[in-house]
Design a protein around this nucleic acid. Structure first.
Length: 301
DNA sequence: CGTTGGCCCTGATCGC
DNA sequence: TGCGATCAGGGCCAAC
């Protein structure tokens, strides 16, 4: 379940193999991995073949690699996507959906493998459009251009252009529960189920706590917790909840060993010792401490 | 317009 | 051993 830290680990992993690397050939083993691409597989292959990668840029959970001509290869890992680097497509296993053969300047050839079990991830070629502001659109490039299909995605908490006070104000204008707001990629990006639960645990907030009832201070504190959780996960090389997430070198992350709430149902809260609960939330699960994160009371009147 | 609920997709795992 | 049920959840979109 790659979220911002895992995607950033992937970005850093592939970055040394982008600028100046030419895509010699493209193999699409399963066109369902191209659902974000407007057009058939042949179009994807044709537009990518012979192009030169310029950078590896990330905003939230979206990655894109500009290829010139105002276009970029856009990559979203979905739930189970992986980007693997190797020497031959055969080494990536049966879940390999797309392979790119790369030739680097003065280096031997290499293969970029897109592996995805559940097919929620995908690759696409998309037009780069102006964001309308001069600051970089994402991490990894100075360009202020962004793929059209990523334009509606908000900046993330590792983006220096994010103003916490302004973001906290935006959050406080929402009428939804706080977790739903954190997961809304048009408010802020990069947060998924795992890091939302971890940050809410640190902030001692229930997932249904109304966002508009947060004080400005509390909202900003929550953003700080999210940033801390991201930073710790990045240090650890990304969370790996199961074998599905492997970083670009094929190594599993291990932040999952330091999770306080997510996936800890039935275990004692590391802070107070009360049991961690698992509850249905938006067709998935939410984990919280039964004491530290009590269900909010209805406001009287 | 803001908000909300449901759907997509597959393979690992579990229970019988 | 076989097989159906269950589960994982990000992003999108229809509906309210």
């Amino acid at each position: 379940m790659p979220e911002l830290p895992e995607v950033e680990v992937v970005r850093r992993g592939i970055e040394p193999y982008t600028r100046g690397f030419v895509i010699e050939s493209v193999q699409v083993f399963d066109p369902r991995a191209l659902t974000r691409h407007e057009g058939p597989s042949e179009d994807f292959i044709h537009r990518l073949t012979g192009s030169t990668l310029e950078a590896a840029v990330r905003r939230g959970k979206f990655l894109w690699l500009p290829i010139g001509q105002g276009e970029a290869l856009v990559c979203h890992l979905g739930m189970s996507g992986q980007v693997l680097l190797g020497e031959h497509p055969d080494q990536f296993g049966p879940l390999l959906r797309v392979a790119l053969q790369l030739r680097g300047p003065g280096r031997k050839d290499m293969v970029w493998g897109f592996v995805d079990q559940r097919l929620f991830g995908s690759l696409a070629i998309d037009q780069l459009v102006d964001t309308g502001v001069s600051v970089p659109a994402g991490l990894g490039s100075d360009s202020s251009q962004i793929p059209r299909q990523v334009a509606h995605i908000a900046r993330d908490l590792l983006d220096p252009a994010v103003d916490d006070r302004q973001l906290a104000t935006t959050i406080r204008r929402k009428s939804s529960g706080i977790k739903r707001v954190l997961l809304d990629q048009s408010v802020l990006s990069g947060v998924g189920n795992i890091y939302a639960d971890e940050a809410l645990w640190r902030a001692k907030l229930h997932y249904d706590y109304p966002a508009h009832r947060l004080s400005l201070t509390k909202a900003r504190e929550l953003l700080g917790h999210l940033r801390d959780v991201f930073a710790q996960a990045l240090e650890d090389g990304g969370t790996s909840f199961d074998w599905q997430y492997v970083n670009v070198n094929g190594q599993s992350g291990y932040f999952s060993q330091s999770l306080n709430a997510y996936g800890q149902a039935g275990k004692p809260c590391p802070r107070c010792g009360r049991i961690i609960l698992r509850e249905p939330f938006m067709n998935r699960s939410s984990f919280r401490c039964s004491r530290c994160q009590p269900r909010p009371r209805r406001r009287v009147g």
